[in-house]
Amino acid sequence: MKQLMKGNEAVVHGALVGGATHFFGYPITPASEIAHAAADFFPRTGRHFLQAESEVAAINMIYGAAGAGARTMTASSGPGVSLMAEGLSYIAGAELPCVIVDVQRAGPGLGNIWPEQSDYNMVVKGGGHGNYHNAVYVPNSAQEMCDMTAHAFDIADRYRVTVFILSDAYIGQMMEPVEIPDSVHHAPAKPWALGATSETRDNLITSIHMSTADQAAHNWKLKAKYDQMEAEITDWEEVFTDDADTLFVAFGITARICLTAVQRLRARGVRAGLLRPKTVFPFPRTRIAELVDQGPVREIAVVELNDGMMADDVQLAAPSVRVHRLNWLGGQVPTAEQVLEMAAQKAGQR
Protein backbone atom coordinates (compact mmCIF):
# COMPACT_ATOMS: atom_id res chain seq x y z
CA MET A 1 0.00 0.00 0.00
CA LYS A 2 1.39 3.34 -0.97
CA GLN A 3 1.59 6.09 1.60
CA LEU A 4 1.22 9.76 0.90
CA MET A 5 4.28 11.55 2.18
CA LYS A 6 6.62 14.43 1.49
CA GLY A 7 9.77 13.76 -0.46
CA ASN A 8 11.63 14.93 2.62
CA GLU A 9 9.88 12.32 4.76
CA ALA A 10 10.49 9.68 2.11
CA VAL A 11 14.21 10.37 2.49
CA VAL A 12 14.10 9.26 6.11
CA HIS A 13 12.10 6.13 5.28
CA GLY A 14 14.63 5.35 2.58
CA ALA A 15 17.52 6.01 4.94
CA LEU A 16 16.18 3.60 7.52
CA VAL A 17 15.66 0.77 5.05
CA GLY A 18 19.06 1.75 3.65
CA GLY A 19 20.60 0.90 7.00
CA ALA A 20 21.38 4.40 8.23
CA THR A 21 22.12 4.46 11.94
CA HIS A 22 23.33 8.00 12.56
CA PHE A 23 21.77 11.29 11.47
CA PHE A 24 23.45 14.60 12.23
CA GLY A 25 21.59 17.66 11.06
CA TYR A 26 20.95 21.35 11.23
CA PRO A 27 17.59 22.84 10.24
CA ILE A 28 17.17 24.76 7.02
CA THR A 29 14.19 25.42 4.79
CA PRO A 30 13.26 23.59 2.59
CA ALA A 31 15.05 20.53 4.00
CA SER A 32 13.94 20.70 7.63
CA GLU A 33 11.29 17.98 7.40
CA ILE A 34 14.11 15.51 6.89
CA ALA A 35 15.55 16.44 10.26
CA HIS A 36 12.06 16.41 11.79
CA ALA A 37 11.34 12.91 10.53
CA ALA A 38 14.82 11.70 11.47
CA ALA A 39 14.41 13.11 14.99
CA ASP A 40 11.21 11.10 15.24
CA PHE A 41 12.16 7.82 13.56
CA PHE A 42 15.85 7.39 14.33
CA PRO A 43 15.62 7.32 18.14
CA ARG A 44 12.55 5.13 18.28
CA THR A 45 14.14 2.57 15.97
CA GLY A 46 17.26 2.43 18.12
CA ARG A 47 19.25 4.72 15.84
CA HIS A 48 20.85 8.04 16.65
CA PHE A 49 19.77 11.57 15.84
CA LEU A 50 21.68 14.65 16.89
CA GLN A 51 21.04 18.27 16.03
CA ALA A 52 24.45 19.78 15.47
CA GLU A 53 25.37 23.37 16.30
CA SER A 54 26.03 24.09 12.64
CA GLU A 55 26.41 22.39 9.30
CA VAL A 56 30.15 22.58 9.87
CA ALA A 57 29.76 20.50 13.01
CA ALA A 58 27.24 18.18 11.37
CA ILE A 59 29.55 17.21 8.54
CA ASN A 60 32.39 16.65 11.00
CA MET A 61 30.18 14.48 13.18
CA ILE A 62 29.57 12.51 10.02
CA TYR A 63 33.32 12.35 9.46
CA GLY A 64 33.67 10.86 12.93
CA ALA A 65 30.72 8.49 12.72
CA ALA A 66 31.66 7.31 9.23
CA GLY A 67 35.24 6.87 10.38
CA ALA A 68 33.89 4.78 13.23
CA GLY A 69 32.10 2.55 10.72
CA ALA A 70 28.51 3.78 10.87
CA ARG A 71 26.08 4.41 8.03
CA THR A 72 25.58 8.10 8.56
CA MET A 73 23.90 11.03 6.85
CA THR A 74 22.76 14.61 6.98
CA ALA A 75 20.39 16.79 4.99
CA SER A 76 20.56 20.46 4.15
CA SER A 77 20.08 23.07 1.47
CA GLY A 78 22.54 25.22 -0.46
CA PRO A 79 23.67 27.58 2.30
CA GLY A 80 24.27 24.63 4.60
CA VAL A 81 26.01 22.55 1.95
CA SER A 82 28.34 25.50 1.32
CA LEU A 83 29.35 25.31 4.97
CA MET A 84 30.00 21.59 4.62
CA ALA A 85 32.47 22.04 1.78
CA GLU A 86 35.50 21.66 4.05
CA GLY A 87 34.22 18.46 5.62
CA LEU A 88 33.21 17.01 2.26
CA SER A 89 36.75 17.48 1.02
CA TYR A 90 38.18 15.75 4.10
CA ILE A 91 35.66 12.93 3.75
CA ALA A 92 36.67 12.45 0.13
CA GLY A 93 40.35 12.57 1.02
CA ALA A 94 39.94 10.07 3.83
CA GLU A 95 37.62 7.96 1.65
CA LEU A 96 34.76 7.78 4.08
CA PRO A 97 31.24 6.73 3.06
CA CYS A 98 28.28 8.96 3.83
CA VAL A 99 25.04 10.27 2.39
CA ILE A 100 24.09 13.95 2.08
CA VAL A 101 20.72 15.19 0.93
CA ASP A 102 20.67 18.65 -0.64
CA VAL A 103 17.16 20.02 -1.02
CA GLN A 104 18.08 22.89 -3.31
CA ARG A 105 16.71 26.39 -2.92
CA ALA A 106 17.42 29.54 -4.87
CA GLY A 107 20.76 31.29 -4.40
CA PRO A 108 23.32 32.76 -4.30
CA GLY A 109 23.57 33.91 -0.70
CA LEU A 110 20.45 33.52 1.34
CA GLY A 111 18.43 33.60 -1.88
CA ASN A 112 14.97 32.26 -1.27
CA ILE A 113 13.35 28.98 -0.36
CA TRP A 114 11.88 28.13 -3.75
CA PRO A 115 13.35 25.53 -6.04
CA GLU A 116 16.47 25.98 -8.09
CA GLN A 117 18.94 23.41 -9.36
CA SER A 118 21.81 25.81 -8.93
CA ASP A 119 23.85 23.70 -6.50
CA TYR A 120 24.64 21.51 -9.52
CA ASN A 121 28.19 22.74 -9.96
CA MET A 122 28.96 22.78 -6.24
CA VAL A 123 27.73 19.25 -5.68
CA VAL A 124 28.55 17.61 -9.00
CA LYS A 125 32.00 19.09 -9.38
CA GLY A 126 32.95 18.52 -5.76
CA GLY A 127 32.26 21.64 -3.73
CA GLY A 128 35.35 21.64 -1.56
CA HIS A 129 39.04 21.86 -2.35
CA GLY A 130 41.11 19.26 -4.11
CA ASN A 131 40.61 16.51 -6.67
CA TYR A 132 37.46 14.64 -5.77
CA HIS A 133 33.91 13.85 -6.72
CA ASN A 134 30.75 12.83 -5.00
CA ALA A 135 28.33 10.35 -6.45
CA VAL A 136 25.21 12.41 -7.16
CA TYR A 137 21.73 10.99 -7.55
CA VAL A 138 18.92 13.24 -8.74
CA PRO A 139 15.46 12.05 -7.69
CA ASN A 140 12.39 13.36 -9.47
CA SER A 141 9.70 12.07 -7.11
CA ALA A 142 9.03 11.26 -3.49
CA GLN A 143 9.40 7.59 -4.41
CA GLU A 144 12.88 8.21 -5.77
CA MET A 145 13.75 10.27 -2.68
CA CYS A 146 13.11 7.08 -0.74
CA ASP A 147 14.63 4.57 -3.14
CA MET A 148 17.72 6.57 -4.05
CA THR A 149 18.48 7.35 -0.40
CA ALA A 150 18.27 3.67 0.48
CA HIS A 151 20.50 2.77 -2.46
CA ALA A 152 22.90 5.61 -1.66
CA PHE A 153 24.20 3.88 1.47
CA ASP A 154 25.20 0.80 -0.52
CA ILE A 155 26.95 2.96 -3.12
CA ALA A 156 28.68 5.01 -0.43
CA ASP A 157 30.05 1.88 1.19
CA ARG A 158 30.93 0.18 -2.09
CA TYR A 159 33.16 3.05 -3.24
CA ARG A 160 33.83 4.77 0.10
CA VAL A 161 32.52 8.09 -1.20
CA THR A 162 29.98 10.72 -0.32
CA VAL A 163 26.72 10.12 -2.12
CA PHE A 164 24.55 13.16 -2.66
CA ILE A 165 20.83 13.08 -3.13
CA LEU A 166 20.49 16.30 -5.11
CA SER A 167 16.87 17.25 -4.71
CA ASP A 168 15.00 20.55 -4.77
CA ALA A 169 12.36 22.42 -2.83
CA TYR A 170 9.48 20.95 -4.82
CA ILE A 171 10.65 17.35 -4.71
CA GLY A 172 11.32 17.74 -1.00
CA GLN A 173 8.17 19.62 -0.05
CA MET A 174 5.58 17.89 -2.16
CA MET A 175 3.65 14.87 -1.07
CA GLU A 176 3.25 11.88 -3.31
CA PRO A 177 2.37 8.24 -2.89
CA VAL A 178 5.40 6.23 -1.84
CA GLU A 179 5.85 2.50 -1.60
CA ILE A 180 8.34 1.74 1.15
CA PRO A 181 10.75 -1.09 0.26
CA ASP A 182 10.25 -4.14 2.44
CA SER A 183 13.84 -5.18 3.04
CA VAL A 184 16.41 -3.45 5.19
CA HIS A 185 19.97 -3.04 3.91
CA HIS A 186 22.96 -3.37 6.19
CA ALA A 187 26.50 -2.05 6.11
CA PRO A 188 29.19 -4.47 4.99
CA ALA A 189 32.11 -5.28 7.27
CA LYS A 190 34.45 -2.28 7.46
CA PRO A 191 37.84 -3.55 8.54
CA TRP A 192 39.34 -0.15 7.77
CA ALA A 193 37.14 1.71 10.24
CA LEU A 194 37.91 2.76 13.82
CA GLY A 195 36.22 0.09 15.86
CA ALA A 196 37.83 0.85 19.21
CA THR A 197 39.13 -2.74 19.25
CA SER A 198 42.52 -4.41 19.09
CA GLU A 199 41.79 -5.50 15.51
CA THR A 200 41.22 -1.92 14.39
CA ARG A 201 43.84 -0.23 16.57
CA ASP A 202 46.22 0.15 13.64
CA ASN A 203 43.63 1.97 11.57
CA LEU A 204 44.15 5.58 10.66
CA ILE A 205 41.58 7.89 9.13
CA THR A 206 43.37 10.79 7.48
CA SER A 207 43.57 12.86 4.34
CA ILE A 208 47.20 13.83 4.77
CA HIS A 209 49.84 12.54 2.38
CA MET A 210 52.99 14.47 3.11
CA SER A 211 55.12 13.38 0.19
CA THR A 212 54.18 14.55 -3.27
CA ALA A 213 54.55 10.99 -4.50
CA ASP A 214 52.11 9.67 -1.91
CA GLN A 215 49.62 12.44 -2.57
CA ALA A 216 49.86 11.86 -6.30
CA ALA A 217 49.34 8.13 -5.88
CA HIS A 218 46.36 8.75 -3.64
CA ASN A 219 44.79 11.21 -6.06
CA TRP A 220 45.27 8.86 -9.01
CA LYS A 221 43.67 6.12 -6.97
CA LEU A 222 40.68 8.39 -6.34
CA LYS A 223 40.53 9.21 -10.05
CA ALA A 224 40.51 5.52 -10.92
CA LYS A 225 37.67 5.04 -8.45
CA TYR A 226 35.62 7.79 -10.08
CA ASP A 227 36.26 6.25 -13.50
CA GLN A 228 35.13 2.91 -12.15
CA MET A 229 31.96 4.55 -10.81
CA GLU A 230 31.29 5.97 -14.26
CA ALA A 231 31.51 2.50 -15.74
CA GLU A 232 29.40 0.88 -13.05
CA ILE A 233 26.75 3.21 -11.67
CA THR A 234 25.92 5.81 -14.30
CA ASP A 235 22.14 5.78 -14.49
CA TRP A 236 19.51 7.48 -16.61
CA GLU A 237 16.05 7.06 -18.06
CA GLU A 238 15.06 7.51 -21.70
CA VAL A 239 11.67 8.25 -23.20
CA PHE A 240 11.05 8.22 -26.97
CA THR A 241 14.76 8.43 -27.75
CA ASP A 242 14.69 5.74 -30.46
CA ASP A 243 13.73 8.15 -33.20
CA ALA A 244 14.02 11.52 -31.48
CA ASP A 245 15.62 14.32 -33.44
CA THR A 246 15.00 16.77 -30.64
CA LEU A 247 16.34 15.56 -27.33
CA PHE A 248 15.36 17.11 -24.04
CA VAL A 249 17.79 16.58 -21.19
CA ALA A 250 16.59 17.42 -17.70
CA PHE A 251 16.81 16.06 -14.18
CA GLY A 252 14.72 16.21 -11.04
CA ILE A 253 11.64 18.38 -11.07
CA THR A 254 12.32 19.78 -14.56
CA ALA A 255 12.50 16.26 -15.98
CA ARG A 256 8.88 15.75 -14.90
CA ILE A 257 7.86 18.93 -16.64
CA CYS A 258 9.84 17.96 -19.72
CA LEU A 259 8.13 14.60 -19.84
CA THR A 260 4.79 16.35 -20.18
CA ALA A 261 6.31 18.69 -22.77
CA VAL A 262 7.71 15.79 -24.79
CA GLN A 263 4.40 13.93 -24.67
CA ARG A 264 2.66 17.02 -26.04
CA LEU A 265 5.20 17.36 -28.81
CA ARG A 266 4.71 13.72 -29.74
CA ALA A 267 0.97 14.31 -29.87
CA ARG A 268 1.70 17.06 -32.37
CA GLY A 269 3.86 14.74 -34.43
CA VAL A 270 7.20 16.17 -33.34
CA ARG A 271 9.87 13.52 -32.81
CA ALA A 272 10.98 14.64 -29.39
CA GLY A 273 12.61 12.50 -26.73
CA LEU A 274 13.79 12.86 -23.16
CA LEU A 275 16.94 11.73 -21.46
CA ARG A 276 16.69 12.07 -17.71
CA PRO A 277 19.96 11.54 -15.84
CA LYS A 278 19.39 9.72 -12.57
CA THR A 279 23.04 10.27 -11.72
CA VAL A 280 24.73 13.54 -12.64
CA PHE A 281 28.05 12.31 -11.30
CA PRO A 282 28.83 10.04 -12.94
CA PHE A 283 27.17 11.80 -15.86
CA PRO A 284 25.63 9.76 -18.72
CA ARG A 285 27.88 11.53 -21.20
CA THR A 286 28.66 8.38 -23.17
CA ARG A 287 24.98 7.70 -23.76
CA ILE A 288 24.33 11.29 -24.82
CA ALA A 289 27.24 11.08 -27.25
CA GLU A 290 25.84 7.82 -28.61
CA LEU A 291 22.42 9.31 -29.19
CA VAL A 292 23.99 12.18 -31.10
CA ASP A 293 26.60 10.22 -33.01
CA GLN A 294 24.55 7.16 -33.84
CA GLY A 295 20.99 8.46 -33.68
CA PRO A 296 18.92 11.10 -35.38
CA VAL A 297 19.33 13.73 -32.63
CA ARG A 298 19.84 17.10 -34.30
CA GLU A 299 19.44 19.40 -31.36
CA ILE A 300 19.34 19.18 -27.61
CA ALA A 301 17.35 21.27 -25.17
CA VAL A 302 18.68 21.21 -21.63
CA VAL A 303 16.04 22.41 -19.21
CA GLU A 304 17.29 23.49 -15.81
CA LEU A 305 16.51 25.71 -12.86
CA ASN A 306 19.95 27.28 -13.08
CA ASP A 307 21.85 29.26 -15.67
CA GLY A 308 22.94 26.27 -17.70
CA MET A 309 25.20 24.23 -15.46
CA MET A 310 24.29 20.78 -16.72
CA ALA A 311 24.06 22.15 -20.24
CA ASP A 312 27.84 22.62 -20.06
CA ASP A 313 28.23 18.91 -19.37
CA VAL A 314 25.82 18.02 -22.17
CA GLN A 315 27.68 20.22 -24.62
CA LEU A 316 30.95 18.58 -23.59
CA ALA A 317 29.41 15.18 -24.19
CA ALA A 318 28.03 16.19 -27.57
CA PRO A 319 30.22 18.95 -29.03
CA SER A 320 28.87 18.54 -32.55
CA VAL A 321 25.26 19.31 -31.76
CA ARG A 322 23.50 22.53 -30.90
CA VAL A 323 22.63 22.60 -27.19
CA HIS A 324 19.84 24.99 -26.25
CA ARG A 325 19.77 26.25 -22.72
CA LEU A 326 16.29 26.58 -21.30
CA ASN A 327 16.77 28.09 -17.89
CA TRP A 328 14.58 29.38 -15.12
CA LEU A 329 15.98 31.09 -12.06
CA GLY A 330 15.04 32.52 -8.71
CA GLY A 331 12.61 29.79 -7.74
CA GLN A 332 10.45 30.11 -10.83
CA VAL A 333 9.38 26.76 -12.18
CA PRO A 334 8.04 26.58 -15.73
CA THR A 335 4.96 24.79 -16.90
CA ALA A 336 5.24 22.32 -19.74
CA GLU A 337 3.79 24.97 -22.07
CA GLN A 338 6.41 27.50 -21.02
CA VAL A 339 9.10 24.93 -21.72
CA LEU A 340 7.64 24.34 -25.18
CA GLU A 341 7.40 28.07 -25.86
CA MET A 342 11.00 28.66 -24.93
CA ALA A 343 12.13 25.59 -26.86
CA ALA A 344 10.40 26.89 -29.98
CA GLN A 345 11.89 30.32 -29.45
CA LYS A 346 15.43 28.95 -29.02
CA ALA A 347 15.06 26.66 -32.01
CA GLY A 348 14.01 29.63 -34.09
CA GLN A 349 17.13 31.56 -33.14
CA ARG A 350 19.54 29.45 -35.13
Binding site: N60, A65, L204
Partner: peptide, 20 residues
Protein backbone atom coordinates in the same frame (compact mmCIF):
# COMPACT_ATOMS: atom_id res chain seq x y z
CA UNK B 1 43.11 4.15 16.73
CA UNK B 2 43.74 7.47 15.00
CA UNK B 3 41.73 10.02 13.11
CA UNK B 4 43.03 13.28 11.75
CA UNK B 5 40.47 16.08 11.86
CA UNK B 6 39.86 19.32 10.02
CA UNK B 7 41.03 22.46 11.78
CA UNK B 8 39.05 22.99 14.96
CA UNK B 9 36.52 20.27 14.27
CA UNK B 10 37.87 17.50 16.47
CA UNK B 11 35.15 17.89 19.14
CA UNK B 12 32.49 17.40 16.46
CA UNK B 13 34.37 14.42 15.02
CA UNK B 14 34.69 13.02 18.54
CA UNK B 15 30.97 13.52 19.03
CA UNK B 16 30.23 11.54 15.89
CA UNK B 17 32.44 8.69 17.05
CA UNK B 18 31.02 8.81 20.56
CA UNK B 19 27.53 8.18 19.13
CA UNK B 20 28.86 5.07 17.38
Amino acid sequence: GNIQCAHGRAPAVATGMRRV
